[in-house]
Design a protein around this nucleic acid. Structure first.
Lengths: 165, 165
DNA sequence: TTTATTGCAAAGCGTTTGCAACGTG
DNA sequence: CACGTTGCAAACGCTTTGCAATAAA
């Protein structure tokens, strides 16, 4: 019954370039985080970081693992799981759970340039978009309830152009 | 490491009343759905429906199961899982996956009266809100990409009033 | 009487953990 | 050298499934 999740494909809705986080930038961010916590930068972590950024978009652990194994065949899945958590803590990656129960990671550029997702329920492609107006209204809603907002998730589901016919 | 999910508590942000879906309304909706599909209305399904609506807010299967067992101690968890899927198909319930990996169900009133969530990252309470302006902007964004919107999810995370001190 | 549904227990899936060997600082 | 990290396999928690018994229609 549960159809295997095929993809996901990412289509940039706004026609803008890919993630702004460069490898060297991420590497130094990681190094800083490791240093400050007494942790170590290992070959595996660096390899995972490289593959992760090369993919540059939403990735699940399974796909990421496959990518990393091209260079480091012996890597274990536990390492990837552990490392992605680390990346999240280091501010390099963001974890997103989509509706089908799929957990994906995506590069975290910084707090400027937040984007949300448009998801086609038929072909399961994921499109990105940004909308400053909505973000401001979200702030207002939060403020009205006395909330101090830290982050948010917004996903719009529907049929993309191709799947409407 | 993974802290057991405590709750969730629901706080109505707008001070409006609880879900508008009445038991009889839901029962007839269910009966119609069953009839049209050649399925059966059983004691268990009716019992689950009653407990589900009585709770009236976000429930996980575990909590719902506990509630139903007060009246029908012999009920199996598989039945609850299967029934909730059925309710979703019948338009009685909506499935929501929150970030912690928690899957919750909530009564589905109909398409009018959609609400979203404000979630405190400290106490994990979930507040509801509605904002028509945001909904309209979402429509605009979707339209700009040629999308036909069917539904959406929006979750705002932050610190609630109580947890800011 | 037919066919869907139930409860149970077993399997499934993605993720996490314990551990001994290993590698980094 | 000390101690964090790795890969492995086993454990985990939630969810789904196969099955024989049961109950709606």
């Amino acid at each position: 019954m549960r159809s295997r999740f095929q993809g996901p494909f990412l289509w940039l809705a706004e026609g803008r370039g890919m993630a702004g986080l460069t490898l060297t930038e991420a590497q130094s961010r990681l190094a800083a985080h490791m240093r400050s916590r007494g942790l170590k930068v290992t070959r595996q972590r660096d390899q995972i970081l490289e593959s992760f950024l090369k993919i540059g978009k939403h990735v699940g652990v399974e796909d990421l693992l496959r990518a990393v194994r091209k260079n480091t065949p012996s890597i274990g899945n536990a390492t990837v799981y552990r490392t992605m958590k680390l990346f999240v803590e280091a501010g390099i990656a963001e974890e997103r759970r989509f509706s089908a129960g799929v957990t994906l990671y995506e590069p975290h550029d910084g707090d400027e340039h937040h984007h949300d997702h448009l998801i086609c329920t038929v072909c399961e492609r994921i499109f990105e978009f940004e909308n400053e107006e909505i973000e401001q209204l979200q702030e207002q809603v939060a403020e009205a309830q006395g909330f101090k907002l830290t982050h948010h998730k917004m996903e719009l589901y529907g049929l993309c152009t191709d799947c409407q016919s």
